[in-house]
Design a protein around this nucleic acid. Sequence first.
DNA 1: TAGATTGTTAATCGATTAACAATC
DNA 2: TAGATTGTTAATCGATTAACAATC
Lengths: 206, 206
Amino acid sequence: MTTSEVPDIVIGRLPIYLRALTLLHEEGHEFTSSQELGQKLGIGSAQIRKDLSFFGEFGKQGTGYEIKYLHDQISKILKVNRDWAVALIGFGALGQAVTNYGGFATKGFYIEAIFDSDPNKIGKTIEGRVIQDIANLVEVITRQKIKVAIIATPVQVAQQVADQLIAVGVQAILNYAPITLTVPSNIQVQYIDPVVHLQRMTYYLT
Amino acid sequence: MTTSEVPDIVIGRLPIYLRALTLLHEEGHEFTSSQELGQKLGIGSAQIRKDLSFFGEFGKQGTGYEIKYLHDQISKILKVNRDWAVALIGFGALGQAVTNYGGFATKGFYIEAIFDSDPNKIGKTIEGRVIQDIANLVEVITRQKIKVAIIATPVQVAQQVADQLIAVGVQAILNYAPITLTVPSNIQVQYIDPVVHLQRMTYYLT
DNA sequence: TAGATTGTTAATCGATTAACAATC
DNA sequence: TAGATTGTTAATCGATTAACAATC
């Protein structure tokens, strides 16, 4: 959440739009409208038009949006029209699942460095990448100029790992550890904690 | 997002509060304040007090909140002071990671039924649970009266799986498939798509 | 042209926050 | 008592939405 022209909540919806556009494209559609998109996403059509208007004019009156064009434009806005090198810290069950998940690479996020502290894991090769000693984190990430990291460590070390990452220039952290990280305001952090999502839903259950 | 007395955004913060309280408790603290909590979570203290005020009075002027008590109260509010049976649909790499993840059970979410469509997987036993044919989903979930489900299927079948789940009484869905599900307004859905989180952050990168 | 849909404005709605009396 | 912190009010801030002129 950085001070910015465009509200962060709008930025947060763009990947959702992108995902829907990808799906429509795969289904062979060529055009869509703010109404159709909104229906699919459970969002008002006005909101979609307003969100897009922060960045330019992407549609045509009467016909709507060309799906491929809008997809490319949003990709550019989000800077996902290129590849990003990602560091993964923690190669436990979760870190291994993250590594094996094909969805990152197909979207341009390549895990190019993996770290763990377990001597039994350090040195092993996983799909061409050697698991490195977390003691070398500072050196390796500095050298490779990696800007994006995924934390999949135990919760006890997550904050100190984050501190190290930030110290060597990482600007965006996807944190799987169940803890809110304390970071400077210019650092991006996103959280994945499935338990949080489940707990949010049980409130509504009868 | 159901029509409700308490704003859904407030409900969404309660699990975060719970997580912080758990941590403080584990660190041996006995009391905390809205200020301390807010600092740890990057949230204003007034917001925390306001959020809690929707449900009652849990603190004491001058001393703040007893951590264990507040934790228990929020647990009750969220209905996570009991166990929940969970169905898992899809036993690919992701579904397997979800099954092996210990974090669900320790928070009271027990995966009590696993479904897949692959004949090579159906019938196998995983930690005491047999992988069942997705063709039996309707029967099994109806019989076991399961209310919470996790979708970890390929994106192509996620919507139809969701439709089936809802038809047999599932009220809360945690969806790992990269698609926005269309569901009735009384059904809770939460999404986990790490790519969405990463794409949201790259916008801010230089 | 007639119909459809955009981009944008202004109104509405809702969430956050500052301030403070109450009180432990 | 003095200091600290709550719960709550009212003001501020920001996001959503309805409406419509413009135009494809």
